[in-house]
Amino acid sequence: MDTQIEISSEPLKTQACIDWVMSPQCGGIDIFIGTVRNATNGKNVVKLEFEAYEPMAIKEMEKIAEQAFKKWQVQKILVHHRTGILEIGDIPVIIAVASAHRDAAFDACRYIINTLKQTVPIWKKEIFEDGEVWVAAHP
């Protein structure tokens, strides 16, 4: 069981993430790559800004990885999250999971991104042509 968790203001490197989870014991890698979409609810998005409470975010992501290791037979988990201003098509998050068999990797990867969105203290601001809004802040 091996984990790599990072928060970075630099562009995320997809190939390096894949390389890190590769291992001879694993029959497959499941990877989730989040990308910045150009619209939300029909409104054009110009860019996104991500902010993290870094020490707590790292701690929460470590907890999620630990839970995933307990629930599924996976070998390696990588979670990288970006901060700062991101343009359309940029990558805010990469989750990569390697396991001996594919079902565990698919399930763990989905669990990690879904839980990250619920518990990890990172915030996304959508910036439109005519204003900006912190996502999910208001009911």
């Binding site: 707590m56 999250h81 805010p92 990890v120 203290p121 990172i122 912190w134 999910a136 802040a137």
Partner: peptide, 10 residues
């Protein structure tokens, strides 16, 4: 101590 509004990472 920190105030944590609804999170929206990912």
């Amino acid at each position: 101590v920190a105030v944590i509004p609804p999170v929206s990472g990912g």
